[in-house]
Amino acid sequence: MDQKVKNLLDDWEIDNPALYEIASSVRTKILQLADRVGEEVKYGGILFAAPIPFCGIFVYKQHVSVEFSHGAKIVDPHGLLEGKGKGRRHVKLHTLEDIENKHLTDYLRLAQKAAE
């Protein structure tokens, strides 16, 4: 693990253990998507690429946002994507249960395909 990634995760754990737990679980899911998923700290979060950048995790005061770099290309099967910009979309997670309830694994796979 990159030292900058470790430092950011440590900061999140200290600042808000509940949100850190969500972010850490999401990170694990992302890293399991492909054989080689790169990660880097950028814009205050962790960005992921396999090899093209496709998503990122950002921790805010009351939620974790999973941002999809090419989210506007995703046909939203569950109607949960938020955002109206040219390219990006996101899903907000408030609890660990939201990871499953908001079909995050589906969105991660779709985001990875949209980036290709």
Rank of each mutant, 00 (worst) to 15 (best):
A72M: 07
P17H: 02
G38V: 09
E100R: 09
M1S: 06
H103L: 00
A49E: 07
N101Q: 13
Q3A: 13
K29Q: 14
L9K: 09
C55I: 07
H70K: 14
K102G: 05
H103D: 01
G44Y: 12
H78I: 05
K6S: 11
N101V: 03
P51I: 12
L96W: 00
R109H: 10
E116C: 11
F68H: 02
R36E: 15
L110P: 00
H70I: 06
I30E: 03
Y43V: 01
A72L: 05
E97Q: 11
K92C: 08
K42E: 04
N101L: 09
R36L: 11
L93K: 01
V5D: 05
L33P: 04
D15N: 12
G56M: 09
G79K: 10
L108H: 03
I57T: 13
F58R: 02
G56I: 03
K61L: 15
I30F: 04
I74L: 05
D35Y: 09
G87D: 10
L81F: 10
A49F: 13
V37C: 12
S25I: 00
A34P: 07
D76Y: 02
I14T: 15
G38P: 00
A50N: 12
I14A: 11
S25V: 04
D76P: 00
L110K: 00
A23H: 01
K84Q: 15
D11V: 08
G83C: 12
Q62K: 13
V64L: 04
V41C: 05
H70T: 11
Q112A: 06
G71S: 09
T95H: 03
L47R: 14
G83P: 07
F54D: 02
A114E: 04
L110I: 08
P17Q: 08
D15G: 01
I22G: 00
A34Y: 08
Y107K: 09
D35K: 13
N101I: 02
I52K: 10
D35A: 10
H103I: 03
Q112L: 14
Y60E: 14
K92M: 08
K42R: 15
F54K: 01
A115G: 07
V64C: 13
P17T: 06
V41H: 12
D10F: 10
V91T: 10
V59R: 01
E39S: 10
H94S: 08
E39T: 06
Y60A: 15
Q32G: 07
I52M: 04
P77E: 02
N7W: 06
P53M: 05
D15V: 06
A18I: 10
I74V: 13
R27A: 11
N101W: 03
V37L: 11
G79C: 05
A72E: 07
K61V: 15
L93R: 06
V26F: 01
A50F: 04
T28S: 12
E82C: 10
K113Q: 13
D15S: 07
L81D: 09
K86M: 02
A50S: 14
